[in-house]
Design a protein around this nucleic acid. Structure first.
Lengths: 340, 340
DNA sequence: AGTTGGCACTCCAGTCGGACGAGTGCCAGC
DNA sequence: GCTGGCACTCGTCCGACTGGAGTGCCAACT
């Protein structure tokens, strides 16, 4: 099976099929690629590849189409990452450098990724769980109403309203602010939530009530894993290029509505490696016709979130992988810079 | 033309066509609706309606399909808003009452609206321009780096980083914070930006530089109309039900990527009236096959933003209009409550 | 042993033509 | 002004047919 030419044939089949969207036959193959052999020879190799499950014939006397297993081999062994062009690199750099806050970074990168790959791009917002608390601010709106602002190391900002049973004075509020920040600033979010919960025990009796209210809402915001589910999606219009509406487009459109599903698709990709999940390898049988190319992002080994693209199994893996990796790197860098 | 029965026929055609997606013929019409006349009579009326441009025949010996003009008449004269069911009302109330911040309100309403109408829903984030400033917070991250947090009356929170040329002390920072808030709190955003720009003239000389830096970024954030372009979209999967992919789905998918286009689609709908724009009435010729049902939202007459649904011209106008109005009212109420 | 050209075979896609049926327009009669 | 009847128009559905792309296999060649 370690037959070089057979691998070449497989690579050629994948490349042609991705380009043309049509089953590829032996004759067209030798013409378009410079394999120095005759169609008949290629046919023999194809028959072998089919026996081994790498390619598949939709029906007798049609060309061959790669199977998921075939794509897998292609990605693992045969694909060389397409380097980004200079223009692309520059586009990434200038676009992302102009981002003004976290929202902006996420939205611009998802857009960028979808344009680079001409696929549907997904970017997860940095998760709360790995963040540290940068600052907590308490803003009095009315005497009995506070707005809590929770600023995280990723640049993420959460806001919550708190109703107090009785008015709180400016001095008390300042004290509370200091206490809360001392307990949580610079601390990993889970630890911060814990530290905060202990806070009401240490304050003056008349402050217990208000402290408890504030701390309760803060701790809830910190452990609100619903907000870990935030994702940005872009490039759905690219689905229009899919041939097969019912098997490919519709299920994917439906999945895109469900952020939980999307996150599961992106998966917990390692920070540095680009993960490719091909067709049935993914967790959803309805999405057997779509592949996911994803990776994690975050400065150094801290995995803050994932990003990637989804598309038909018949997609440009080398190009997508390169684009995903490039964008993830830039995003990591930007987040890191904003953090110093 | 003020012929009652002809109007009935038109209404019946619209309703049937919306339900079946197929051209409707005279015989089916009299059967399904209780018009007490014969098919032949209906045919005469149909011929008249066609002369007047309200309906159209795809080809000889096919049924009739409403034209944009026909839908327009239907919406203006014939449609009675479908009242929301109790269950629907309750769903709206419980879902939106559970919203924890502005993001949450917007995302939940857009989702809700798409589910109620089974269409693509769009909700614009409250625009900056009509908001007043509630509070400005300055958080020192490092001695020479501040995070500015701008809290608006709508619950919107904007954040920006400022780099200072030289470190600023705690006391100076507190002073600056007070000055900035005095200049802007409670003030319409445009006026606040103006007031802030005058600020550097009134502070102690050694504070001028830092004040100028902070004020500059704040004023920029306040007048950043790009952020007025933020919209949330939901329900794209509903597009899958469209018959006609190329003329209806693809252009709409493309439009949904362009937030500017979406906002233009939503238009500056009056706060109380539900606007319906049918097919070619809209600003984009590519979207000649889609209609928009939209309205403004915001407490009282303050127009904070727009929301609505887009779908095929063949859509359930009464139901969509009712849902759009109901959601807009709830959103307005929630925003108003959070504001007291 | 591996490669090649030849050949018979399969099966999809596209075309053509006729039958069918839904729907119309028109007209004469009520 | 409404109705029933009737001829007519087209689009759709089927089945038959054909052309072509592509295969598998085999015998011959290197």
């Amino acid at each position: 099976m370690v037959d070089d030419r057979k691998l070449d044939v497989l690579r050629a089949i994948v490349e042609d099929y991705v380009a043309t969207e049509e089953p590829v036959g032996s004759k067209a193959l030798v013409e378009r690629h410079g394999l120095g052999v005759s169609p008949a020879t290629v046919r023999n190799d194809m028959a072998a590849l089919e026996d081994e499950g790498y390619i598949h014939q939709p029906h007798t006397s049609a060309g061959r189409v790669p199977t998921d297993k075939g794509y897998r081999l292609f990605v693992d062994k045969l694909a060389t990452l397409k380097p980004m062009t200079v223009a692309e690199r520059r586009a990434i750099a200038t676009l992302l450098d102009g981002a003004v806050d976290l929202d902006d970074v996420v939205q611009k990168s998802v857009r960028l990724l979808s344009q680079l790959t001409r696929q549907v791009a997904i970017v997860q917002y940095p998760t709360l769980s790995r963040s540290t608390v940068r600052h907590v601010e308490l803003v009095p709106l009315t005497p009995t109403r506070l707005m809590l602002i929770l600023i995280l190391s990723t640049g993420r900002v959460e806001q919550r309203l708190v109703e107090l049973d009785e008015a709180i004075g400016d001095a008390d509020l300042a004290e509370l602010r200091v206490a809360v920040n001392q307990a949580s600033a610079g601390v990993q979010i889970a630890a911060a939530a814990a530290a905060l919960c202990a806070l009401p025990d240490d304050v003056r009796p008349e402050q217990v009530e208000s402290t408890r209210a504030v701390v309760g809402v803060l701790a809830e915001a910190m452990s609100d894993h619903r907000s870990d589910e935030r994702v940005a999606v872009s490039g759905t219009a690219n689905l229009a290029r899919y041939g097969d509406f019912d098997t490919a487009v519709r299920p994917l459109l439906e999945a895109l509505e469900e952020h939980v599903v999307l996150l599961k698709l992106l998966g917990e990709s390692g920070a540095d490696a680009v993960t490719v999940r091909i067709g049935h390898e993914g967790p959803y049988t309805e999405l057997a016709a779509t592949s996911v190319v994803a990776t994690g992002y975050g400065p150094l080994d801290a995995h803050l979130g994932s990003l990637g693209v989804v598309g038909p199994t018949r997609m440009d893996y080398p190009g997508s992988m390169a684009a995903v990796r490039a964008v993830a790197r830039y995003v990591s860098r930007i987040l890191d810079e904003g953090n110093q």
